[in-house]
Design a protein around this nucleic acid. Structure first.
Lengths: 209, 209
DNA sequence: ACAGATTGAGCGAGCGTTCAATCGCCAATT
DNA sequence: AATTGGCGATTGAACGCTCGCTCAATCTGT
């Protein structure tokens, strides 16, 4: 009965986490390839490296796998966003840098973003709310960067809109890749979007007051 | 053998079209509600007002229904876009008007746009190519409006980017409705996006040369 | 020898699809 | 006017198959 270093309950936890990661790793590839609905639980089990029986020791329903995958995607995005943002910087340069990092991130995670767009609606209502909140959190991060970076006064609404634009423009680099990546490289796309954001069309009449 | 007004082959065609429209009308509602995969062929048949047997007289596979639905959505968008665009106008006002009409259109068709985002990947390769081409056509329409509206020289790339931005910003009003429509009305959203497009952040240093 | 982890054959429900039987309409025939 | 024959359109029971999920049997490490 003497417990050595690792109590069994914790040992279980470690195994659960290991299995969970195996599942996520296997499932995400399959979901990217064939989508959630066309992927069978047997395929997920095989891709995870264990049997269908073991799979069901760690989930209750097939949908749980989708949730784990979605959650891990958001986790990765969030971590990399936090790593690339410096809240002490307050110049417009920091905004530009944040955009560049974020677009690079979206370039790396194109397939994952596509899966999210296509499959979130297959989640339960509660899971969708959870995911929606994560989305809001990330937009809020962008809003903060924008606020820090703009010296002049800008309305809360304007900042919100800009944050949403940047957020979606990053994603659209992935989900409209078949159109955009014919005409742009990631660099030219990023450069173009930053230019547009900062200058717009610059069509205002030069009024002399 | 004397043919009266309507030859039977044409009569057939009329029926086919009628049935097709019944299917589209019934199916689109179901797809919006529960998605393509969770909708059964029996449900589609019932919603169309005929039996499962008749359904299969007019399609070969379930996927065909999805294609018909997607096609009809694009058709509606295209028609309304064409109706709201006046190629003889060449001022910036015509661009603004085009954006306003397009955003209004996307507001009307939020659910349909969402279905497209979620279900296109369930189409066959060829059908996806077909749909992608329609998408390209529509972006090209926007590019034309932009070109007509801008007196100054703008690079082909810049125009392309702007067209894609407007296109996606219209759609995102629908697919990010849970976030955007908390903070904006369609009017304030449209106004904000136009403002950003025309002016950007307007942060350029006022350089005195 | 025991507990926890793993297995995969098997269950049952639900799905897309088919097709023999039936319907409904109209022209030809009585 | 009533009857009949023919044919395209329609029906839904039935088929075969796949999939999500379970659980009795087995394995593994201590």
């Amino acid at each position: 009965m003497a417990e050595n270093q690792v109590p069994s309950s914790i040992k279980d936890e470690v195994l659960v986490l290991k299995r969970r990661n195996q599942m996520i790793k296997g499932a995400v590839t399959l979901f990217i390839e064939k989508g959630f609905h066309k992927t069978t639980t047997r395929e997920i089990a095989k891709a995870s490296g264990f049997s269908i029986g073991t799979l069901y020791e760690y989930i209750r329903k097939k949908e749980d796998v989708l949730f784990l995958v979605c959650d891990s995607i958001y986790q990765r995005v969030k971590e990399r966003m936090e790593a690339s943002i410096d809240p002490t910087q307050t110049s417009i340069k920091s905004l530009i840098h944040a955009i560049q990092s974020y677009f690079q991130l979206m370039d790396d995670m194109q397939d994952e973003v596509l899966v999210m767009y296509q499959e979130v609606k297959s989640l339960s209502r509660e899971a969708q709310d959870y995911v929606l909140q994560k989305e809001r959190d990330m937009v809020a991060m962008l809003e903060q960067v924008i606020l820090n970076s703009l010296p002049e006064h800008h309305s809360k609404e304007e900042v919100k809109l800009i944050a949403n634009n940047i957020f979606v423009q990053g994603q659209m680099w992935g989900f409209r890749r078949w159109i955009l990546q014919r005409s742009f490289t990631l660099e030219s796309y990023t450069e173009g979007q930053i230019q547009l954001l900062l200058q717009g069309l610059n069509t205002q009449e030069k009024e002399r007051s």
